[in-house]
Design a protein around this nucleic acid. Sequence first.
DNA 1: ACAGCAGTCTACCGCTCGGTACAGAAGTGA
DNA 2: TCACTTCTGTACCGAGCGGTAGACTGCTGT
Lengths: 200, 200
Amino acid sequence: MSTIGRPRAFDEEAVLDRATEVFWQHGYEGASLSALTSAMGINRPSLYATFGSKEQLFQRAFARYHETQVTAARAALDKPSAYAAIEAFLRASADGLTAADHPAGCLSIQGGLACSPENAGISEILAAGRAATEAALAERLTRAVDEGDLSDDTDVRALARFVMALSEGHAVHAAAGASREDLQASVDIALRAVGALQRR
Amino acid sequence: MSTIGRPRAFDEEAVLDRATEVFWQHGYEGASLSALTSAMGINRPSLYATFGSKEQLFQRAFARYHETQVTAARAALDKPSAYAAIEAFLRASADGLTAADHPAGCLSIQGGLACSPENAGISEILAAGRAATEAALAERLTRAVDEGDLSDDTDVRALARFVMALSEGHAVHAAAGASREDLQASVDIALRAVGALQRR
DNA sequence: ACAGCAGTCTACCGCTCGGTACAGAAGTGA
DNA sequence: TCACTTCTGTACCGAGCGGTAGACTGCTGT
């Protein structure tokens, strides 16, 4: 298929990554179109022709972010035991939240926990993403119960929620400037709880 | 002192509470002046004459919120043992985050984790408030170490951060609709970690 | 009674927001 | 070469933002 007409002067995924960073730092509502286009190095009509609207751009950015995040999380969940899976999840999360190659914290949290009423959909998209991660975690823990790795009376939903909540709290801390070591020390403590469960 | 001139037609603290709820639900930037004045039952000039600006109104709202929150937290920290203090803190936090008489979640989180660059000060104010709570927690735990209630090698800063992070994660969950019972079940798990520390 | 003060109300300010019309530029196919 | 298609750039749109001017209202002190 030949491309007829004037070719694009930018790479779609590259500018999407730049947009993601702006959303990540300032949230959906805090990221103005001027800030976005400036960071992306394109102008408004190009943005609208390529992505449709600010909201659709955000959805693309979040989908991409979540996909890579879930990939990393999936790797953690493949560990052989529930304890190892949770540890890997929390350690990778703490690392990712404080990595130097992107903004601190987590787009799922920074993006728009609270929004003006007309952007309530953004909060819901983010919440759905977090819920999906939590569900994947719960599924892994259910398997651990089935395999006898966790005792039968383990409250799997609560454990998954605990791990997610801690990870989200770490995201809040990371956005406020906490270091990797700060978060990992907190993970150390959390793992005592998980260890206590496993020894049953 | 006599009040000369026309008297106010509203109670300052009452309308401040209404404003707090709007900020709590929609965040600083998501709360428009129209939404605020409508909820407060006053009009713009009255708001500006009384509170100065949107930002000052937010600061008043947050100060009031934080004061009452800290009062509740202080009560938890007065418990005789570190374990009891942490448990009371997390239980009260979970209750408060899901109480029916105000919006779900926590103003310190909902208010504006991410902001547009010109409102970066809001994020900082909120972060400072959370840091103050964490510091109070750390201070209480330091005392517990001094009293032999926690072992000497306890990482007090990490433990305080762990508790705060979990509480903040619960705030995220509460804002997304988690119930009191959901959060308390997560607290149950967290307390195993604290118990493991205390048994040393 | 009435002057003077402080609060209220309507209507507006400049500005930025997300989004777009339209002209020109950069390619393709004949 | 030139019609055709598609992207780029400027300049703009209506709407809503935070904030305010100025007329009006209700109360107090003399």
